[in-house]
Write a protein that binds this DNA or RNA. Structure first.
Lengths: 336, 336
DNA sequence: CTGAAAGCGCTTACAG
DNA sequence: CTGAAAGCGCTTACAG
């Protein structure tokens, strides 16, 4: 069943059918109705390959490139972004790539074979973008990671101010009387966690204290399991901690369990703060204090900027989206 | 940059280049090397649209259709299935559809426009399949839901025996001395939860007791929030419960929080059992007793069956994949 | 082993 | 407003 069949069945020419299908002007109402009728009757669907082959360039959909499948913060943003695209009557395709895959290379490839209108990246590695962005011919927006310092002028980015947010966590803990604070998660290299760690150090420095990387920090990946292990190591080494700051809620969940397994209680013995503001953080016992990243706003700013760029409006920008420190049950106020 | 450019640059004809690109036999080593060299040099990538337009029918990839993005059981299965396809050197594309969208119709559409080799469904509604499966021209496999009774002969399905699993949960609780057991989650209509509820009723019946749907059951969707609300309602109505069975781990998480908010403790005052065996179930405090669905095996059986069907081997089947009851900390043994 | 040619299913100037 | 024709970038019989 192809467009020629529709032409034959409707009594019109192939060109006219195509015009109807593409909502082109210059078709009589009668022809339009007749063709549409036939199309419906036989359940015809145009061959996208043939279509795209011709309309090379002007493709019809956006692409979201996501690093990792298990990141709940990302799933949240994806759903919101999808909603936004749908509202604007734009198609989107979500592409997952491995945690450590080259997202820019993948996008460059998709750019060649699918010609999307633009790319929305969830998570990204500087090196990949710096090396590969020039291969991408359409506008790109990065979320949850700032590209402000990458020297790329075709890439916008929207993110939480990770450093400030982390800083505010330490400030909060300090206010509550904690000064022996352990930190777990990420590492000093990976962008996002490095910035959160920067914030931690800044907060300590502001109080004339040096954050002891060796003693008070344990790196780990963003999973419950690794959060658990890291907490165990940290606890074994530094028994006098009164609080732990986990650089991700998922890590905090592991920490919660580890602390409990060590016979301590949260927050009675050890206070705990997470990062991200995932749904689950408000359901754990005790409710987890955390930094809430505004996924809704992140998605909105990202999608808007991307669509604007595609339409030639606006200019690449790097913005912080406001975060909120959620003070919940997992932090105890120490009597001084 | 297209195949003609490569032909020109390499000094060979368009046909030869195409043969090299497709690993066709009947090309001299010299030609092959030369062409590949040029391809690498200029970074040429064939136009998939043109390619698929010609090779209509024999497409190259599989499609996974997933109902809902937030289902962590599904994400787990997806990752494993992707790994399996990758091992077999097969391409896969993951397509998410809304929780209540028509997955069969979506697949039928994809079938027409992308011609995948086969479909792997994660979650599915009987009605959609019964009405729409005939529109799909390639093999289909459904996971986490049995299609044994749908009367469809082109669809295989692999799933946990939900009824038996639920039954074993009740048996377990009963053994531990619980007989006033509340159940939350799903409803009597939706396939999966209905089967779990069947199992619950069967277990009670085996003990000569009738499960009181009105009093002891609260339906809800599979989210922490709804699990929380449902538990609150249940607790308000039936204060004498000693145990709650949540039909999903996510629901159990909400229940855990609700029970705690009501001033009860798990398991001291109320025991709790979940379903699914999500990662998070072993990190919550207390560790959640639950039914572990074997996502690895589910993925493996599904992918194998699908690839076999595509290759014309095997015949549609409906199988249960073994589950495991995980007895952890959230259930208290009552002294009788 | 290689090349020239037909054709996949569409869109879009170009005439009329 | 409509039709006939060219061409998008490929693959694949068909000759040679």
């Amino acid at each position: 069943m192809d467009i020629r069949d529709i032409a034959r069945l409707s009594g019109y020419s192939l060109g006219t059918v195509s015009r109807v299908l593409n909502d082109n002007p210059g078709v009589s109402d009668r022809a339009r109705e007749r063709v549409l009728q036939v199309v419906r009757d036989v359940g015809y669907e145009p061959n996208t390959n043939a279509r795209h082959l011709k309309m090379r360039g002007r493709s019809s959909s956006y692409a979201i490139i996501v690093k990792g499948m298990q990141n709940m913060l990302f799933t949240d943003i994806i759903e919101k972004a999808e909603g936004l695209f749908a509202q604007a009557d734009e198609e989107v395709r979500v592409h997952f790539v491995d945690e450590d895959a080259d997202e820019a290379a993948r996008a460059a490839h998709l750019d060649k074979v699918r010609h999307p209108k633009g790319f929305l990246f969830l998570g990204g590695t500087p090196r990949h973008f710096i090396e590969g962005l020039s291969e991408i011919s359409v506008p790109c927006v990065l979320l949850t990671n700032t590209a402000a310092d990458w020297g790329l002028d075709t890439l916008s980015s929207f993110t939480t101010d990770d450093a400030s947010a982390a800083e505010s966590v330490i400030d909060y803990l300090w206010e509550m009387g904690h000064c022996r604070i352990g930190v777990i998660g990420g590492n000093w290299v990976s962008e996002v966690s490095a910035r959160r760690l920067e914030g931690v150090e800044r907060a300590f420095r502001a109080r004339g204290v040096t954050f002891d990387r060796e003693r008070s920090y344990e790196p780990c990946r963003f999973s419950m399991d690794e959060g658990y292990q890291a907490t165990m190591r940290l606890l074994a080494r530094s028994g006098d901690l009164t609080a732990i700051f986990a650089l991700g809620d998922v890590i905090a969940l592991g920490a919660l369990r580890a602390i409990s397994d060590q016979g301590y209680r949260v927050p009675a013995d050890i206070s705990l703060v997470g990062f991200d503001g995932l749904d689950v953080s408000q359901y754990c016992v005790p409710r987890l204090s955390t930094v809430r990243q505004d996924t809704g706003l992140l998605a909105r700013r990202g999608v808007e900027a991307l669509m604007a760029a595609v339409e030639g409006r606006g200019t690449p920008a790097h913005e912080f989206v406001p975060f909120r420190l959620l003070r919940r049950e997992s932090v105890l106020a120490l009597r001084m």
